[in-house]
């Protein structure tokens, strides 16, 4: 199917879209916390995938290549915003107050809570705790240090505890 799409077969590419759109949209909506933005980014991801199919050499699974492209697309769209927020981030590194242990029985509550996290905390939390990426890979994608990633993750978990505490 990938080979056909690479030759310009839009029907084959649509089959790839149908097979992967849920996973790509899931990544985009969790990374952005915004359904409308995630829909636009999902479309951008598939258009970019179409444009770049010639660079996919089959060394990894197509899904791996596509999901990495999706993460890259979301992060590129947010880097400008992060740059503007850098000063604010540096001044907001005060430790979070301890929060009680919440009752995380409802996955939907957790989804909504993730959407309320600050941008970078949410990205690190989704990539590390949901997608299973190591801190070193996240740091490279975000253009930051591993220690900073760990700090974002710790803050994300603390904030989730506050939001979800009974």
């Amino acid at each position: 199917m990938v080979g056909l799409a690479r030759e310009g077969d839009a029907g084959a590419f649509r089959s790839l879209y149908e097979a992967h759109v849920g996973r790509v949209y899931g990544l985009c909506v969790r990374l952005t916390g915004n359904e409308g933005e995630a829909e636009e980014l999902t479309q951008d991801v598939f258009v970019r995938a179409w444009e770049r199919l010639s660079t996919f050499r089959g060394d990894s699974a197509f899904s791996t290549w596509l999901y990495r492209l999706a993460v890259n697309q979301v992060l590129m769209a947010r880097r400008g915003r992060w740059r503007r927020e850098r000063r604010i981030l540096l001044s907001s590194t005060a430790p979070e107050a301890p929060a009680p242990t919440p009752q995380w029985d409802n996955a939907m509550d957790l989804e909504r809570a993730i959407a309320t996290l600050p941008d970078r905390c949410r990205v690190v939390f989704v990539l590390h705790d949901i997608e299973g990426w190591p801190h070193a890979d996240i740091a490279v994608e975000m253009g930051t240090a591993v220690g900073t990633c760990k700090a974002h993750l710790f803050r994300a978990r603390r904030l989730l505890r506050k939001v979800l505490a009974p």
Binding site: E39, W104, E111, L160
Partner: peptide, 21 residues
């Protein structure tokens, strides 16, 4: 530990509200 249990149960795939094709 609690968070790990719930995140493991989250579906990786999410259906968009509308067709994006």
């Amino acid at each position: 530990r609690s968070l790990r249990r719930v995140t493991a149960s989250l579906p990786r795939s999410v259906v968009p509200r509308r067709s994006l094709w």
